[in-house]
């Protein structure tokens, strides 16, 4: 019985994946067709076959690796520093209520402000290249990480904290034995959101000033009206961020399995 049930479940999961791939292929096929038969302007919209051809060329010359490498490095740095720094600051706010109250309006304004508007200034301050772009990436994820992690932390049940206090737990013990483990799932979600945020920062940063990177490819492609190049950049971007997301998903599954 149980075996049958599992089989059915696996069958359904398989069906969904096949359908997803078919849908993707269908969209690409329609795009190709529309471009070839002149329903859309192939100069403006390009077509999948030319994009793939270009991508293969970039792979052959090895040029793509340089661009992917640099963007990926900036994104990873932005993601790691932004997330860790954000969680550390959130912990400090949780630890000291007065600091949290003082910083509250600054965080709200900081969150409401479109950080991309600050990107040019940040790059002028910090300098161009990997350093400047990483800082832009951090600026986009940091404030939201602080606010959401802090909210998760203070929403842990008060009675659970009292339970630990009844054993005379120190604040550090409450943090490490309750607050962090109770929010592990939430913190992983923050990482997932920050993948997207860091990519926004990196692409914006590369748009402003850069010599390499996927953002550079896309901007350059637009400037010389090479839509194949633009589409290729977007395609590479989509694949890499999907892969990053899946890596985090895998880590999450491992943790959940260990816990239960």
């Amino acid at each position: 019985m149980n075996n049958n049930f599992l089989k059915q479940k696996r069958k359904l999961a398989f069906k969904i994946i096949i359908s997803q791939i078919c849908l993707l292929l269908l969209l690409l096929f329609l795009w190709e067709l529309a471009s070839r038969w002149g329903w859309i302007d192939s100069f403006l919209f390009s077509k999948p076959s030319s994009v793939i051809k270009l991508l293969i060329n970039y792979f052959k010359t090895g040029e793509i690796f340089k661009h992917i490498g640099i963007s990926l490095l900036e994104t990873m740095l932005g993601l790691i520093i932004g997330t860790i720094l954000g969680i550390v600051i959130a912990t400090i706010l949780w630890w000291n209520n007065t600091i949290a109250k003082i910083l509250d309006p600054f965080l709200i304004v900081g969150n409401a402000l479109p950080k991309t508007a600050l990107a040019p200034i940040l790059i002028i301050w910090v300098g161009t290249g990997i350093k400047g772009i990483t800082v832009v990436a951090i600026s986009i994820s940091l404030i939201l990480t602080i606010i959401s992690a802090y909210n998760y932390f203070i929403n842990v049940e008060v009675e659970k904290i009292r339970m630990l206090q009844s054993f005379k737990a120190t604040k550090w013990q409450i943090l490490t034995k309750l607050i962090i483990p109770a929010n592990l799932g939430n913190l992983i979600n923050i990482i997932k959101i920050n993948i997207g945020m860091s990519w926004v920062g990196v692409i914006v940063g590369e748009f402003i000033v850069s010599k390499y990177g996927i953002g550079y490819l896309i901007l350059y492609g637009t400037q010389v009206f090479n839509m194949e190049l633009v589409m290729m950049g977007v395609l590479v971007l989509a694949i890499i961020s999907f892969l990053m997301y899946e890596v985090v998903n895998l880590i999450e599954k491992k943790i959940r399995k260990k816990r239960n």
Partner: peptide, 19 residues
């Protein structure tokens, strides 16, 4: 207020662990 990320045994030991 048992913690669902700890086994029963580890939950029971939390007081001694804190002390």
């Amino acid at each position: 207020h048992l913690f669902n990320w700890r086994t029963v045994w580890k939950n029971i030991l939390i007081g001694l662990e804190i002390k």
